[in-house]
């Protein structure tokens, strides 16, 4: 079986990005929303007392850093959840499916279109936060933040992986849901496992070390890739076009 055609994947991605750009609500939300996630870490860092021991300071700055890991989880879930059911609702899915586009190409294109702005904004936010810490925080606090190697690595390494998780969950909901609102509400559930992991790390149940960070990264990557394939298989053209489940056919299923 042939793999996805890059031209078609890129065509889907470009179209999606163009639609985001033309939708004022998406642009405004994308710009404003991440800054809410900057408030808590900034406030925590700037009100922190630099008088504690180095170990206690390290522990203190861990939570604000991990908190920002929620940005790439929460931000893409709504967009991903809209992607397929939204096409269906605006009547553009059927024309799309009459083209040579394969299901895997559609899913990859949609996922990439959500991933790109999510990562640009997440990394921009992280860099902005670290700049603020470097320039304005007390030197002891600043030193503690930059001393958190595994957490900083986790922040940058995990961002695309947890975003990938949120996107595949959103897409999975989107290919099954019949209503945009339901899809977007269910898509928000994607953040729960990540929130749980962040909390476990913040309260010290999971200790952030380079080894743990890499192990988690590999697990999430494996889950993301597997989930992407599952989403492609969940994509049932017949159900999406007619709203009815595909019946068992005496001829072979036509759903490449």
């Amino acid at each position: 079986m042939r793999g996805p055609d890059t031209t078609r994947v890129l065509a889907v991605m470009r179209k999606e990005l163009l639609e985001y750009r033309r939708t004022r609500a998406i642009v405004v939300t994308m710009i404003i929303f991440p800054f809410f996630f900057l408030i808590e870490p900034i406030v925590s860092i700037f009100v922190a007392s630099p008088s504690g021991s180095a170990a206690s300071l390290d522990k203190f700055v861990t939570f604000p850093l991990l908190y920002m890991l929620l940005v790439p989880v929460v931000m893409p879930s709504t967009l991903a959840a809209y992607s397929v059911v939204g096409e269906r609702e605006q009547g553009t899915l059927e024309p799309l499916l009459t083209t040579p586009l394969r299901t895997s190409e559609l899913i990859l294109g949609k996922a990439a279109a959500v991933m790109v702005p999510t990562m640009v904004l997440s990394y921009s936010l992280y860099v902005l936060f670290l700049l603020c810490v470097q320039l304005f925080a007390h030197p002891a606090i600043s030193s503690a933040v930059f001393h958190e190697g595994p957490v900083l690595l986790a922040l940058f390494l995990f961002a695309p992986l947890v975003a990938g998780w949120a996107i595949v969950v959103g897409l999975a909901v989107s290919v099954r849901a019949n209503d945009v609102r339901v899809a977007q509400q269910l898509g928000a559930l994607a953040s729960f496992p990540i929130v749980a992991v962040v909390l476990l790390m913040a309260v010290g149940v999971i200790h952030a070390t380079f080894g743990v960070a890499f192990a988690f990264a590999l697990v999430i990557l494996a889950i993301d890739l597997r989930a992407l394939r599952i989403v492609s298989r969940m994509f049932n053209r017949e159900r999406l076009v007619t709203g009815t489940k595909a019946t068992r056919s005496r001829t072979r299923r036509v759903s490449p």
Binding site: V241, T247, S249, R250, T251, R253, S255, P256
Partner: peptide, 13 residues
């Protein structure tokens, strides 16, 4: 839709 490969036929060719 069936001839356009959007739906799978139940039988026939």
């Amino acid at each position: 839709r069936t001839l356009g490969t959007l739906l799978a036929p139940t039988s026939g060719s």
